[in-house]
Write a protein that binds this DNA or RNA. Structure first.
Length: 487
RNA sequence: GUCUCCUUCGUCUAGUGGUUAGGACACCGGGUUUUCAUCCCGGCAACAGGGGUUCGACUCCCCUAGGAGAUGCCA
């Protein structure tokens, strides 16, 4: 079969995890089956339309490195790929449905529908179909009153509709449980999702409709529309939902909603792709790490699960660390630099000196970085003052002010020559000094660490001193000595 | 309310009638280590419940419960 799948976002909000997951599954299915991946913009809701959202779609997927084979910006043989540019088509098919008796004009006002819904108080028996069988002369009165019409689909009152779903198998619905006579064409002349999606998927020769499970109740309706138009529906493939940690559909409450927020939080696109791809899909009982290239090859419909998945930030954090560690030094430098600039830790662009220091500092922080965003805090002491600390912070456990003072004074001349020696040589030297002072290496190094970095947690000491320079390092030791003396 | 989908460790999942129910994250211990992190070793922890079918059910069927989704001139 010739696989053609689409991601069809509506530009009414920023791209979020759920949408991206749907896009990714479509994309990987297309790639792994030698098919085509299509982007279609479903901008039929003119009230919620938002220019920024359209830009966000492009920014998001360009950041992720996902490209479509056909779409508004790249063209293709089935365009236009923006629904607002296809309005004539939808009107044409709505007209056909009316002519064939599968649809009808209705003249309810928005206000009437709203209050009718409220009256039902969630008991929701749905629309009462009052225009469905109304004689033309009676409808004429509504027209004369100037009420705008919509076109509604005539859902069969009995019988049932069956469709095949790659994930769920055979699904059968009683037609009486299908949404009663939904609107196909709105009063503003634009189609609803139901009409547009059927017309476009057919015209664009979409082979598989991969979308979230929230669409399951609409599927029988869509099948009915395909049939009414004399078309064969594509294969369906309803993807399990992605939930927040409270088990509800992922939404704004659950932290970073927009995908680009993940970028500014310091996630790597590959980590996101890897993580999101494993939400509702698996390969075997061993592998967790998949590159985009591997997913393009290995993804398969059969391994999609039915149950909803909860988005686990902890596991994503771990994966992000894994991907950060796999980066080359140069790549990590490039990834970290914007965060250093944005935080003001270095200039934009950085001085040559700062660029050099940052480049050399990368290996020191690579294995301790969970998010790119953490880099400025880890390295701040190299580009400015160390973090503030109190005299007590300098004291190793169970050591007095005097003892610590002694350590710092003994160690000061050694710090000056740290950059001239290897880490091993330094360690040996400090170790014998510790022996001499009758203390542990840790007790010797911790006060220096605090003095140099301002924190008990830091990159490896000798490397840090090397990057800071003997001069500054010594000054900081002195400052620490003076602080203790003032006690 | 109604309709529909779903149900293996806390989380993501492997598993397609016979397994000590496997892996990963998280968590808890231990080791390596100049702090942190990495890394290594170990541990905790699951088939929602009840009926069937079967020599045998996590696997098949039914019911119950729980969760979720839909119920718009939004997608």
């Amino acid at each position: 079969m010739n696989v053609r799948v689409r991601y069809a976002p509506s530009p009414t909000g920023l791209q979020h995890i759920g949408g991206v997951r749907t896009a990714l599954f479509n994309y990987f299915f297309a790639r792994s089956s030698g098919g085509r991946f299509i982007l279609r913009i479903e901008d039929t809701d003119r009230e919620r339309y938002d220019e920024k959202s359209l830009q966000d779609i492009h920014d998001t997927f360009s950041w992720l490195g996902i490209r479509w084979d056909e779409g508004p910006d790249v063209g293709g043989d089935y365009g236009p790929y923006v629904q607002s540019e296809r309005s004539g088509l939808y009107r044409e098919y709505a007209q056909k449905l009316i002519e064939s008796g599968h649809a009808y004009y209705a003249y309810d006002t928005a206000q009437e529908l709203l209050s009718a819904r409220e009256e039902q108080e969630g008991k929701g028996s749905g629309y009462d179909r009052r225009f469905r069988d109304m004689p033309e002369d009676e409808k004429e009165e509504y027209r004369n009153r100037g009420i705008q019409s919509v076109v509604r689909f005539k859902v069969p009152l009995d019988g049932s509709t069956t469709f095949h779903d790659s994930v769920l198998g055979e699904v059968s619905w009683a037609n009486e449980d299908v949404n009663p006579d939904p609107v196909l064409l709105k009063s503003d002349g634009y189609p609803t999702y139901h009409l547009a999606n059927v017309v476009d998927d057919h015209l664009m020769e979409i082979s598989h409709i991969m979308r979230a499970q929230e669409w399951i109740p609409s599927a029988p309706l869509h099948v009915l529309i395909y049939r009414a138009l004399g078309w064969e529906p594509p294969e369906f493939c309803h993807l399990p939902l992605v939930m927040g940690d409270d088990g509800q559909k992922l939404s704004k409450r659950h932290g970073a909603t927009s995908l680009l927020e993940f970028r500014s939080a310091g996630y790597l696109p590959d980590a996101i792709i890897n993580y999101v791809s494993r939400l509702g899909w698996s390969y075997d009982d061993k592998r967790e790490i998949f590159s985009t290239a591997e997913l393009e090859e290995l993804f398969s419909l059969e391994k999609i699960s039915k149950a909803p998945a909860i988005f686990d930030y902890k596991k994503l954090e771990w994966l992000n660390g894994v991907y950060i560690r796999e980066l080359s030094s140069d790549a990590l430098y490039d990834a970290v630099l914007p965060f250093m600039e944005e935080s003001g830790t270095v200039g934009n662009p950085p001085t040559d000196d700062h660029a050099r220091i940052l480049r050399d500092a990368i290996p020191l922080i690579q294995e301790r970085l969970k998010y790119l965003k953490d880099a400025p805090a880890m390295l701040g002491f190299l580009f400015g003052e160390p973090g503030a600390y109190s005299p007590e912070d300098l004291l190793p456990k169970k050591l007095t002010v005097e003892e610590t003072l002694g350590i710092l004074q003994a160690v000061k001349p050694m710090v000056r020559v740290v950059p001239d020696m290897s880490d091993d040589e330094n360690e040996q030297k400090f170790r014998s000094m510790a022996d001499e002072l009758g203390t542990k290496l840790g007790n010797l190094l911790m006060p220096i660490r605090i003095a140099i970095t301002g924190s008990r947690i830091s990159p490896p000491l000798f490397g840090s001193i090397r990057l800071l320079g003997a001069e500054l390092a010594t000054e900081r030791i002195e400052a620490a000595i003076n602080l203790l003396k003032s006690q």
